[in-house]
Design a protein around this nucleic acid. Sequence first.
DNA 1: TGTCCACTGGAAGGGAGGGCTT
DNA 2: AAGCCCTCCCTTCCAGTGGACA
Length: 410
Amino acid sequence: MSDNIFTQYISNRNTLVKNKKALQTTYIPDQLPHRTDQINEIVSIFSAALYGDKPSNIMIFGKTGTGKTAVMSYIGQELKKADPNEDKSVYVYVNCEVVDTPYSILYNIANQIIPDSEMRIPFTGWVTDKVYNELREYIDKKRKVFIIVLDEIDRLFAKAGEDIFYLLTIINEVLTNSKVSLVGISNNPKFIEFMDPKVRSRLGEVRIIFPSYDASQLEDILQARALMAFEDGILEDGVVPYCAALAAQDTGDARRSLDLLRIAADIAERNGDPSVTEAHVKSAKNKIELDAVAEVVRTLPSQSKTVLMSIIVNTEEGHNKMTTGMVFSTYKEVCNLIGCSILTQRRISDFISELDMLGIIYARVISLGRSGRTKEIELSISKDVINIIKNDDMFRNVSSYHPSKQMTLI
DNA sequence: TGTCCACTGGAAGGGAGGGCTT
DNA sequence: AAGCCCTCCCTTCCAGTGGACA
């Protein structure tokens, strides 16, 4: 192969990770440490399906990164192994973060279980009732137990209301040959309280809690993945406990601890280092935090970005702290420079509160006595993140701009 | 103690746009 | 295709507020 811009990276490739898949959060290992009780409970309920009985509906609650989705995927795989030809049971998984309307839920379930050769439900065009009826008829015809897993079910409830849950929970009353069992997964245990009591009790026949992992449990999980991913001697001794401790400090999120380990290994590889050290984990932590804020800032709506740019402009003029009025008058001038419409101060006040909630700025309500009551606003992002906004295409005319004299400086 | 300022933040409602239903 | 409904984004209105100041 002739030399080109990729050659040096290919020839100098330093691979510390022998099995990158094992460090992916989507990878489902053969063992899920510290989730045996939950797995056993769910399996004992699901086993009814293999005898043709209807398993109870289950609601699973637990914070992000507590293994809810991983456990359900694992059990789904195992169920398929126990019933490889789907003679008795069919396992269906739907992520309600992506699929969040009644029509799309039914469409998604139907297209997972009905082969194209038998029927294809169109992406749009049918009345929801028609999809429901077709799905119900197909399910009944098959004389099997259908286990339908609805991940992030609280999002579906927030977006689509409870009608879809009502339809799904009463389906067994109109089925004569088949049975449907529902599993809802949510990180918000409160949402079910807002449901109609009948739907609530049907949906949550059994409730299973996935507690957050503590540092030593996270360490076990990481250790198992590290064994799969790295050759001996590549990871320095303290690395796994350190990743586990950092993630445990947060919310006991196993996903976060895996991210730390994977990104630390990436950094070590790119530096050409022979092993992964705690220093690499520290860099990984900084990178994750910076990336998260940068991503939030990059994807802000344009009006929100303009408000943030106005705050940046004021800060660079030496006003580290400013009022809503100051931000608004700079905002109007920035709008004129970039040619976007000017919203009202009331609306800008909301944007300021949203930026505060996102942790991009710090805003608190203060009283300046005779000078009125307002918010005191200051930036709370790093230079790197500020540069992302300043280099945004929409602000190319703003680089040489200085705001008019502000009358109400703090 | 009352006044005043520069807002805050809740409420109501309009308009646009998108998805669902007929 | 047209109507309906919902959500989102925004405006308008306005009562309420904390503290400096007279």
